[in-house]
Simulated scan of single mutants.
Amino acid sequence: MTATVHPLPGQNRPDPSLDPLVALVAADMNLVNRVILDRMKSEVPLIPELAGHLIAGGGKRMRPMLTLASAALLGYQGTRHHKLAATVEFIHTATLLHDDVVDGSGMRRGRRTANVIWGNPATVLVGDFLFSRSFELMVEDGSLRVLRILSNASAVISEGEVAQLTAQRRIETDEQRYLHIIDAKTAALFAAACRIAAVVAERDEADELALDAYGRNLGIAFQLVDDAIDYASDQAVMGKDAGDDFRDGKVTLPVILAYARGDESDRRFWKDAMEGHRTSDADLDHARKLLERTGAVQDTVARARHYGRRAVDALGRFPDGRAKAALVEAVAFAVARAY
């Protein structure tokens, strides 16, 4: 039996957005935000100050919104998903704090990163605090299955970050390995955020797996677009310095494709660049020219669109309605960020 991959709804519209998703879960997100603010409290003032800096930084809160929207898709009428959505956000925020330290990042969402303001030790420790809070919330939910899904996702994310670190500056990284890395470091939390809704709604494993597939494919598409816009956009679009991946020696899919398609001179340039020997603005401009000539950015976006279609297909078993439409448009939004 051959699987059919349908066109991505909304891909031809000029302005797909998260507005339908935001509107769908607005009331629930208010309750989630209350949980977040309550669980960030600490007798150590630096903890809520530092964590609040990142949480208040204008992020889309896409992952907790996916938990809430998935619950709405299943017609769930309870309240367990509020704490679990907060759990998802704490896991995500903790990983961002740790990532910024590992990457030496100076900007996130157009603001200075916590590690620049408070230093690396405090940033790492507050990230640990948020991980601890997330596990408290998981235990309070009382479901071993939820605990298993979210704790496994946390472990997989860490494995993905380590795998990315070991692949850094290694131009021989291939597409298969890179997809494995982003499946772990990015898509795993998208998948878990959606899947736990099926557990609290007491749906069968088929629904769990469908929501897992939706979140996982959306997460891969989301990361691939991030890879593309690092070379194709500016700080106003990205919320960080353009070309950060290039200067950090991150071998992302556009680089992998351009390296594979280039001539000997191109390959020498990419090897030198990823090893940290070609990092000037002129080198970044040259990298962009090579990416344009080889179609590497366009093909990265094409792959993102493919995973977006797979995400939409995974929702096929669920009834049409406002929640499903919002989840479908979230996919279109994730891919449209590249344009």
Rank of each mutant, 00 (worst) to 15 (best):
A193D: 03
A336N: 14
V162G: 02
R108H: 01
L224I: 12
V251L: 08
P319W: 03
E329M: 01
Q235Y: 03
L97G: 00
A69I: 11
A213L: 10
L24N: 05
D263N: 15
Y339N: 14
E161L: 10
R112I: 01
K83A: 13
D15H: 12
G75L: 11
Q11F: 13
R267T: 06
Q298E: 15
P319M: 01
A210S: 15
D141G: 09
K185Q: 03
D141K: 08
A122G: 02
P64Y: 08
T87W: 07
A311I: 05
T95H: 11
L50W: 12
Q176M: 04
D230G: 02
I181G: 06
A206V: 11
A155V: 12
P254V: 14
V25E: 09
Q176A: 14
N30Q: 15
L290P: 00
F333I: 03
V156W: 04
A236L: 10
R39E: 15
R337Y: 07
A3Y: 07
G75H: 04
A302H: 07
M138D: 01
A338K: 00
D212N: 13
E292D: 14
A114Q: 04
L284E: 08
V312G: 01
R267M: 03
G276L: 12
V101T: 05
H286T: 11
G160S: 09
V22M: 05
Y259M: 04
R267C: 07
A242L: 04
R305A: 14
A304V: 10
K289S: 05
L125Q: 09
M40K: 02
D244G: 02
S265L: 00
V22W: 06
I117S: 00
G160T: 11
G106E: 14
H98K: 01
G127R: 09
H81F: 02
T123N: 08
T300Q: 09
R268M: 00
G219I: 10
D285R: 13
R309M: 07
Y231I: 08
L68G: 00
Q11N: 01
I171C: 04
P20C: 05
A197Y: 02
V116T: 15
G104S: 04
A332M: 08
G243K: 00
T186W: 11
I256E: 08
G321D: 12
L327Q: 02
A287D: 05
D15L: 04
D226M: 08
M1F: 09
S280W: 08
F131A: 01
I220S: 09
I117C: 00
A86W: 12
R247E: 06
G142D: 08
H98N: 10
L73V: 08
